[in-house]
Each structure stands twice: as C-alpha cells, then as structure tokens.
C-alpha cells in the first residue's frame, strides 16, 4: 500500500500554508520532510492521516492495506499523546479494544509489542512515572500494536533531550531494520532526517513547497558509522534551507 499526496495545497483563511505538494510514502521506506518552522509540515502530516482536510489536491491510498492491519495509517506524536490515567499496557489496549479481538489475541499483541520495544518491565507503570524517552517508546509500541502500513511521525524526538534522542534514533533504526515499515517522518532536525530518511524532502518557507528532494542510498544500519558522509549531506540540506529558515524566522516575528 502506498500513501500519496497529489498536488496538495492548503490555506488557513487568507494565509496559504502549503502549495502543490506531491509525495509518495510506501515500499518500506522512510520519507523525511524537513523545513523551517511554520512551513506547514505538520499540517501536511495531519492531511496525510486524514486528521485535516486539504483545501486543494487530494490525499490518496494506492492498493489495499496488508491483511491484519488494524489501522493502516498510524501516528506517532511529538507529545506522545498517552492517556495519563492508563498504564503502559492500558494505553496499548486502548487502541485494540474497539477491534473485538478477544482476550487471548489482545494479550498476545500486547505481549508482542512490549517485547519488541523492550518495555516488558514497565507494563504496569503510569505515564507520569516514565521518562520522555520511555513515553515515546510506549507510543511506538502502541503504534506497532495496530500493525500499520504507514507510520506518520510528527517530530517524534523533538520533545526529548539530545542523549535520549540518540538512543531512540538507534532504536528506530533497529526497529526499521527488523520490520521495514514505511513512514513519513516530519522533523526540523536535519541530523535526524539524514540518519533515518531514505528520501528527504526539503520544504520552503510558507507557503511550503518542495524545494528539493535528496535521496540517501546509504543503508540505515551503516549510518551511525559513516557520520562524515552524512555530515556532508546534512550540510547540503542546510545550505538549501538556510535562506528559507532565515526568511521564515523574520516572517514569524513580523506576524507576531
């Protein structure tokens, strides 16, 4: 199954935030979207998942979701979006309860995703007892539980400190190496984009358009070791983005 944005544009009132975006997500690849703040990248992600309606263009699903996928398009949020009154296990169960799976099947899925995200010991913990990194791991476990065909990740590491971010990036690479999931990964952090992305779309400032698309052929698992090459790529993306970011910075300050 592929998820396609076909000439998507959007405006809030008179402000045009996105223009003529065409992207395709699928085939077990991670597509990163980077851009200056306010360029509409999170809006784009909400449209891809059907949480917001595009004012122009269409978001399309190509092909059928794989059998057994409970929620083909699944989000991972920046603020984790865990229910504070439910335990780790309860938060995972939340997204399964509507599917009438039966107690054994549900239990099996919960056990499986807790195992895959190494959260077994935290099954009964409440979100407030967990660090930011652990909370995001719970959110990843929850997303895996519904067997998504495409994961939409909205700045998933931006609320975390730099060290936790490194750890979780390693986790994501490991997870991808095992599961080969498809994802659209929105971030303002270029280091994350070149570490995780098979393709990086650089958006311009508002209205956001695709300024450039950078393909990164290097296997994800090798990227931690080949930092110098990534550094060059990151530098290139930054050069493309720098003017846009500077202009966007001034624009936002003007708009107040």
């Amino acid at each position: 199954m592929r998820l396609l944005a076909d000439r998507v544009g959007h405006r809030y009132g008179t402000t045009e935030v996105l223009r003529d975006i065409g992207i395709a997500i699928g085939g077990g690849e991670i597509v990163c979207i980077v851009g200056p703040s306010g360029c509409g990248k999170s809006t784009l992600l909400r449209m891809l998942g059907g949480l917001e309606q595009a004012s122009e263009g269409r978001v399309l699903l190509e092909g059928e979701p794989p059998a057994g996928s409970l929620n083909p398009i699944t989000y991972i949020f920046q603020d984790f979006a865990l229910l504070p009154w439910r335990t780790v296990e309860g938060n995972i169960r939340l997204v399964l309860e509507d599917h009438k799976l039966g107690a054994t099947a549900m239990r099996a899925i919960v056990d499986d995703v807790l195992e895959r995200t190494r959260l077994k010991d935290f099954r009964a913990a409440l979100p407030r007892q967990l660090s930011g990194g652990m909370k995001q791991r719970v959110a990843i476990a929850r997303a895996l539980a519904v067997r998504p065909a495409v994961m939409l990740m909205d700045e998933p590491l931006s609320a975390l400190d730099a060290q936790t971010r490194e750890l979780l990036m390693d986790d994501l690479v490991e997870l991808w190496t095992r599961e080969r999931f498809s994802a659209c990964y929105v971030t303002h952090n270029l280091a994350e984009a070149v570490r995780l992305g098979h393709r990086v779309h650089v958006l311009s400032r508002r209205p956001g358009r695709i300024r450039e698309t950078v393909e990164i052929d290097m296997p994800l698992a090798e990227r931690a070791e080949r930092a110098a090459e990534l550094e060059a790529m990151q530098r290139h993306i930054w050069l493309v983005m720098r003017e846009e970011a500077r202009a966007a910075d001034r624009e936002l300050a003007d708009a107040g």
């Binding site: 989000y75 979006a81 939340l94 509507d98």
Partner: peptide, 22 residues
Amino acid sequence: DRNLIRMGQSFGLSWGSIVRKI
C-alpha cells in the same frame, strides 16, 4: 487535551470510545 482526542481519532476509535475512555 485536544491532542488526546486527535490521537483517539487517528487510531480509529469509535465516537463512544473517545467519549468514554478519553
């Protein structure tokens, strides 16, 4: 928290589940 409601919608929770559980 609107984000929690949005999360519920993004996982395809029914209206009743969102009201009762979130």
